[in-house]
Computed example of a mutant assay.
Amino acid sequence: MHAVQGQATLLLQAMKNGDESAAEKLLPLVYKELHRLASSYMRRERPDHTLQATALINEAYLRLVNNEIDWQGRQHFIVVAANVMRRVLVDHARAHHAERRGGQLQRVELKEELAISEKRSSEVLALHEALNHLDELNPRQAKVVELRYFGGLSIEEIGNILNISERSVKRDWALARIWLFKEIQKLPA
Results as ranks from 00 to 15, higher is better:
His2Thr: 13
His2Val: 09
Ala3Tyr: 14
Val4Leu: 01
Val4Cys: 00
Val4Gln: 04
Gln5Tyr: 11
Gln7Gly: 01
Ala8Leu: 07
Thr9Lys: 10
Leu10His: 05
Leu10Met: 06
Leu10Phe: 08
Leu10Val: 01
Leu10Lys: 03
Leu12Tyr: 06
Leu12Cys: 00
Ala14Glu: 09
Ala14Ser: 00
Met15Ile: 09
Gly18His: 03
Asp19Cys: 00
Ser21Thr: 11
Ala22Met: 02
Ala23Asn: 00
Leu26Asn: 01
Lys32Thr: 06
Glu33Gln: 03
His35Val: 04
Arg36Glu: 08
Leu37Thr: 12
Leu37His: 13
Tyr41Ile: 07
Tyr41Met: 11
Met42Ile: 15
Met42Gly: 02
Arg43Trp: 12
Arg44Val: 07
Glu45Ser: 11
Glu45Pro: 00
Pro47Tyr: 13
Thr50Asn: 08
Leu51Thr: 06
Gln52Ser: 13
Ala53His: 10
Thr54Ile: 13
Asn58His: 12
Ala60Phe: 13
Ala60Lys: 04
Arg63Tyr: 14
Val65His: 02
Asn66Cys: 08
Asn66Pro: 00
Asn67Thr: 12
Ile69Glu: 01
Gly73Glu: 02
Arg74Tyr: 15
Arg74Ile: 02
His76Thr: 04
Ile78Cys: 10
Val79Thr: 13
Asn83His: 15
Asn83Val: 06
Val84Arg: 11
Val84His: 04
Arg86Trp: 10
Arg86Thr: 06
Val88Phe: 13
Leu89Ser: 05
Val90Asn: 06
Val90Ile: 15
Asp91Tyr: 03
His92Phe: 11
His96Asn: 14
Ala98Pro: 05
Arg100Pro: 03
Arg100Gln: 14
Gly102Met: 11
Gln104Ser: 11
Gln104Asp: 11
Gln106Tyr: 14
Val108Trp: 15
Leu110Gln: 15
Leu110Pro: 12
Lys111Ala: 15
Lys111Thr: 13
Glu113Arg: 14
Glu113Met: 12
Ala115Glu: 15
Ile116Trp: 15
Lys119Ile: 15
Lys119Pro: 02
Ser121Phe: 12
Leu125Pro: 07
Ala126Met: 13
His128Arg: 00
His128Glu: 15
Glu129Ala: 09
Glu129Leu: 03
Leu131Ser: 06
Asn132Thr: 09
Leu134Tyr: 14
Asp135Arg: 10
Leu137Pro: 01
Asn138Leu: 05
Gln141Asp: 10
Gln141Pro: 00
Gln141Trp: 11
Lys143Pro: 00
Leu147Pro: 08
Gly151Cys: 03
Gly152Met: 02
Gly152Thr: 08
Leu153Gly: 02
Ile155Tyr: 09
Ile155Gln: 06
Glu156Pro: 01
Glu156Asn: 06
Glu157His: 02
Ile158Thr: 14
Leu162Gln: 02
Asn163Ser: 10
Asn163Cys: 04
Ser165Phe: 06
Glu166Cys: 01
Glu166Ile: 05
Arg167Ala: 08
Arg167Tyr: 04
Arg167Pro: 00
Trp173Tyr: 14
Trp173Ile: 03
Ala176Thr: 10
Arg177Phe: 09
Arg177Trp: 04
Ile178Asn: 12
Phe181Leu: 08
Glu183Gly: 03
Ile184Asp: 07
Gln185Ala: 07
Ala189Arg: 05
Ala189Trp: 12
Ala189Phe: 14
Ala189Lys: 12
Ala189Ile: 05
